[in-house]
Structures are given as C-alpha cells and as structure tokens.
Amino acid sequence: MKDIETRNDIEFLMRDFYSKLLTDPAINYIFTDVAKIDLESHLPHLTDFWEQSVLYKGSYRKNVLQIHQDLNNKVTFTDLHFEVWLRHFNDSIDNNFSGPNAERMKTRALSVASVMKIKIYN
C-alpha cells in the first residue's frame, strides 16, 4: 500500500471515512439530522484541514474546536461518539494507506479527538 501523499489521497480517504460514518447508527444522526451536512460541500473543508495537518500544505483557517463545540450544544457528544469516529478514521487509513503520513494522520486524529473531548467536556 502507498502512503498518503497528495490532496487527492486525502479526499479519497475522507470519502471512505464518511461512507462509514454516515452508515453507522451510533453516530450518523449527528451528521445527517443535527449538522445536516452536505458531503459534497463539506468535503473540501475536511480535505483542507487534513492536508494542512498532514502534508503541511494549504491555508485552513476555520476554528475546528468552535465548530464542534457549537454542534455539541445541539447534541451532546459522548465517549462512544469519539470512539466510533476514531475507529472509522483509523480503519479508513489502515485499509487504504500505509507509511509515515498515514501514521501521522492517525496520531493527529487521536490528538484532535483528545483535545476536543477535554475542551467540550469542561
């Protein structure tokens, strides 16, 4: 398997990841009923965030924490939500990519989830 090397790799990964999230009843309602995301319009933002986080390219400037705190005000996130999110994220990476960037992305995802839990629960 190849490593995550391009924006297209990240977009592919996000599509795979969201296909898992949107079909998992433990978490899909947050995206479909609460956030009401349109994946096609949301995908460039997701790709921007991860491209900057992993490949150090781009200029993502949104406040990811605030976006999720606002969403948490509508539906309370639980430990299960974070566990499911992280499991699908890691599975999507492990099923499609291998290498230093893939490992970096999994580490960053764990960091993002951990910080969000701390900030949202306090």
Rank of each mutant, 00 (worst) to 15 (best):
M1S: 15
M1F: 13
D3H: 15
I4H: 09
E5R: 15
T6F: 14
N8E: 15
E11H: 07
F12D: 13
L13G: 13
M14H: 06
F17W: 10
Y18F: 02
S19R: 13
S19L: 11
S19T: 12
K20S: 12
K20F: 04
L22C: 06
L22W: 00
T23S: 15
T23D: 14
T23E: 09
T23F: 14
T23K: 07
D24A: 08
P25I: 13
P25Y: 03
A26M: 04
I27D: 01
Y29C: 02
Y29D: 11
F31D: 07
A35V: 02
A35N: 03
A35Y: 00
K36H: 03
I37L: 11
L39H: 02
E40N: 13
S41V: 12
H42N: 01
L43T: 00
P44Q: 07
P44N: 07
H45P: 01
T47I: 01
D48W: 03
E51I: 10
E51R: 04
V54M: 05
L55G: 00
L55F: 02
L55C: 00
Y60I: 00
K62G: 05
N63M: 00
V64G: 06
V64F: 12
V64H: 08
I67L: 14
I67D: 04
D70K: 09
L71K: 02
T76N: 06
F77S: 13
F77Q: 05
D79L: 13
L80I: 14
L80K: 13
L80P: 05
H81D: 12
H81R: 03
H81S: 03
H81C: 03
E83Q: 14
V84T: 14
W85G: 08
L86R: 08
R87D: 10
R87S: 12
D91F: 07
D91T: 09
S92N: 06
I93M: 08
I93V: 15
I93T: 05
D94M: 07
D94P: 04
N95S: 13
N96P: 00
F97T: 11
S98L: 13
S98P: 01
S98T: 14
P100L: 13
P100E: 11
P100W: 01
N101G: 06
A102T: 05
R104K: 12
M105R: 10
T107C: 06
R108F: 04
A109F: 07
V112I: 15
V112G: 02
A113M: 05
S114Q: 11
V115D: 03
V115G: 00
M116T: 10
M116G: 06
K117L: 08
I118K: 12
I120V: 03
Y121F: 14
N122L: 09
